[in-house]
Design a protein around this nucleic acid. Structure first.
Length: 722
DNA sequence: CATCACGCTGTTTTT
DNA sequence: CAGCGTGATG
């Protein structure tokens, strides 16, 4: 065969094998930085060069952007046909197929996609409909309810099983929750709505129940590649099984050590069971790391050595030199921010572009202090993760008007739209929705609908909707019209409307890129812009990256700062010091650490400087401390020998016993210590505070000036009066 | 039935 | 602190 690429000289033997094994099932276990993406890109190019029609290649990735980038790169290697491969996320594929085949399942093909907040809204409405007997604990709130239902779907277990494992505090509500689950399902069906999980569920159902469709799709996609397979869940694995059934040309690539999506049902054990699903699977391991230096790999290998189950692999690199990862122990958030900014500046002065550096953290708010300091110093940055453009109220408000144009049955959007009008709340909006739904916008008689008599607001709405439902309306035009109508409401509803007006202008621009309103709305739901900062980034050319660990998948940098802020958990929390949570933290730190090529800082601010024994007393656990705790002391020293802290007289707080004065001191129950409500106190971890309340079970509630309200156990607490 | 004021509670990550 | 639920008020 004639090819233009000299695969032998650019790939190592394992990578080459993965690229050239195109027939039959293949499982590639690819360690961090082992050229996983590169291998997929070359394989795509190789397939196309071998004469496989690009449309016959299905490339499933974690984000749509990742698929696009891979196809782009492959096109650069081979030719432009690579861009015609079918790529995207499981959800986007499922959506694409369901738009044509939903009829088979008894759905309309113009169903609307529900995002998480839509789902929660419906659930809340349903909760209000059924009678719930009050019990010991409060009924789970809507966000929790949504998590329960979604996780149940994604992990394929029953509600009661799931709740026994993870939501034991709500066990007494199992019958109610089961009832709500059923109502929710019916509601969606009745209103032509599908949530994210439904896309997968129905896609799988389509494949499993319809041999014809299965065969048709099997023919269409004869070569399948799946990236980040460790982050797939059971349904996704089934989908792969059904799709690959015909030709069996399926390659999945993943790293069991990097699985951090268990919260949404991902199961890294899918990697272990792939060979059971496809007979004669060829297993290929990529173990050479091309990215990081040895000291960073030593840290990650040490961490993952302790994981309970995993494919045995040990990363190695030819880049033997390099600095040790550094553990930076700072006292406060602002101090940490200034340390990071200072260090970023130093690297920048040495000629490293900001784009080569990143700050990673677990949750979006962890970077607030840093963001403040960065803006103060004029360092440009982009933040991924956290706040979602699409989830902000004003965007949802505006889009609701467009969604009812596309799907007249979309009761969620009807409700949202109606409730923006004065004196229309939960009840009235429901009544009106039931009357109005599915009606033709052009023959609307507002006066006839419930509460419609002389309702100016409703009349105005009717006029706009009529205008919006004109046949050939462009998405851009539609957003503009809706915007004009919504503007007064926006000003009334939000104090910070100028900021929100800007977002809406942004939305007009985005709509300009589409011809079809439906397409525009679907893309917003399934492939929304990552964050507001992401949109702004179009203008900046060199910027620092700030990202949650989860959003950082697939990206890498030379220098990485990991902010590992301690999070306060109440002792009753299920996550408290559980083995599972330590496991997950470990995987997350592993992911974050392996994003770094050369330098790694683990920043560990605030109360984490407390010895573990004391944290445990307080009823808190920490992310970093829980895994440091899990590391034997000598290994810890081996990993962090050049620690920043060591230079300034650092002692490892975790290997140190409690100071004798504290250890020996008999801790008095607070109630017997003469403290009263309103007393000002100090606490070793939280500093100054005021006693708010004494509660039952020997708990005391204290409001700390820096950390807010905490519930402390009197037995284990050392509060001193000041 | 909508809206307001007050009190209570507490992790977070994404398609 | 902030988001939610509850109970009182309009």
């Amino acid at each position: 065969m004639q090819t233009s690429i000299d695969y032998e000289s650019v790939l190592n033997p394992s990578q080459l094998e993965a690229v050239k094994t195109v027939e039959g099932p293949v499982l590639v276990i690819a360690g961090a930085g082992s050229g996983k993406t590169r291998t997929l890109v070359y394989r795509l190019a190789y397939l196309v060069e071998s004469g496989v029609p690009p449309e016959a290649i299905l490339l499933l990735t974690f984000t749509r952007k990742a698929a696009g980038e891979m196809m782009e790169r492959a096109a650069g290697l081979a030719d432009d046909r690579c861009k015609q491969a079918s790529g995207g996320t499981f959800h986007s594929l499922a959506h694409r197929i369901l738009r044509s085949y939903a009829g088979v399942l008894g759905f309309d093909t113009n169903f609307t996609i529900l995002d998480r907040s839509d789902m929660e809204e419906i659930l809340q409405a349903l909760v209000q409909e059924i009678e719930i007997e009050k019990k010991g604990v409060r009924f789970p709130k809507r966000a929790t309810l949504a998590s329960i239902l979604s996780k149940m779907t994604n992990t394929q277990i029953t509600i009661s099983e799931l709740m026994k494992d993870e939501y034991s505090q709500f066990l007494e509500y199992i019958p109610e929750i089961e009832k709500i689950e059923k109502l929710y399902k019916d509601y969606k069906k009745g209103n032509q709505l599908m949530d994210y999980d439904d896309l997968l569920i129905f896609f799988r159902q389509l494949l499993s129940e319809n041999e014809e469709i299965r065969e048709e799709l099997g023919r269409r996609y004869s070569y399948i590649m799946v990236d980040e397979y460790q982050d797939t869940n059971g349904i996704q694995a089934d989908i792969i099984k059904w799709l690959g059934l015909g030709r069996g040309n399926v390659m999945v690539v993943g790293d069991d050590s990097q699985s951090i999506y268990s919260f949404r049902g991902a199961n890294y054990q899918n990697m272990f069971s792939f060979p059971d699903m496809f007979e004669h699977t060829k297993v290929i391991k990529l173990e050479e790391n091309y990215r990081s230096t040895q000291p960073i790999l030593t840290l990650t290998n040490t961490l993952m050595d302790q994981a309970r189950d995993r494919y045995t692999k040990c990363l190695f690199t030819k880049r033997k030199d390099g600095n040790n990862p550094r553990l930076i122990d700072v006292k406060t958030g602002p101090e940490q921010a200034s340390f990071i900014c200072r260090t970023v500046r130093e690297y920048q002065n040495d000629g490293m572009p900001l784009k080569e550096m990143a700050i990673l953290f677990r949750s979006a708010f962890h970077s607030f202090d840093v963001e403040l300091e960065l803006s103060r110093q004029g360092i440009q940055f982009v933040k991924y993760g956290g706040f979602k453009f699409m989830e902000s109220a004003h965007i949802k408000d505006l889009l609701a008007h467009l969604r009812i144009i596309v799907n007249k049955n979309d009761s969620v959007s009807w409700g949202r739209t109606l409730r923006l009008l004065p004196n229309i709340g939960q009840k009235k909006s429901q009544a009106i929705t039931n009357w109005i739904r599915g009606q033709d916008f052009n023959s609307w008689e507002v006066d006839k609908c419930p509460s419609g008599k002389n309702n100016e607001g409703l009349k105005a709405l009717a006029v706009v909707l009529k205008e919006l439902s004109k046949d050939a309306i462009s998405p851009k035009n539609a957003v503009e019209i809706a915007n004009k109508y919504y503007d007064p409401i926006l000003k009334e509803r939000f104090d910070d409307f100028p900021r929100r007006q800007k977002d809406l202008k942004q939305l007009v621009l985005m709509a300009g890129r589409y011809n079809k309103l439906r397409q525009f709305l679907d893309d917003l739901a399934l492939d929304p812009p990552a964050s507001k900062a992401d949109i702004d980034s179009d203008q900046a050319n060199d910027f620092l990256t700030l990202s949650t660990v989860h959003s950082a998948k697939g990206l890498e940098w030379s220098v990485v700062f990991i902010i590992w802020l301690m999070e306060g958990y109440f002792p009753s929390s299920k996550a408290y010091a559980s083995i599972d949570s330590i496991e997950e933290e470990r995987r997350m730190i592993y992911v974050a650490a392996t994003r770094a090529k050369d330098e790694l800082f683990l920043c560990y601010p605030g109360m984490e400087t407390l010895p573990v024994w004391q944290l445990a007393d307080v009823g808190y656990r920490t992310g970093l401390s829980s895994f440091i705790q899990a590391l034997p002391g000598d290994i810890l020293d081996g990993i962090f020998p050049g620690s920043y802290l060591k230079k300034s007289g650092y002692k490892n707080p975790f290997s140190r016993p409690a100071p004798s004065n504290i250890r020996k001191k008999k801790i008095q129950p607070v109630s017997k210590s003469g403290l009263r409500q309103g007393d000002r106190v100090t606490h070793p971890a939280f500093g100054k505070g005021v006693i708010a309340k004494f509660k039952e079970n020997e708990k005391v509630e204290v409001i700390f000036s820096n950390y807010g309200r905490k519930l402390l156990h009197m037995k284990y607490t050392t509060l001193e009066k000041i």
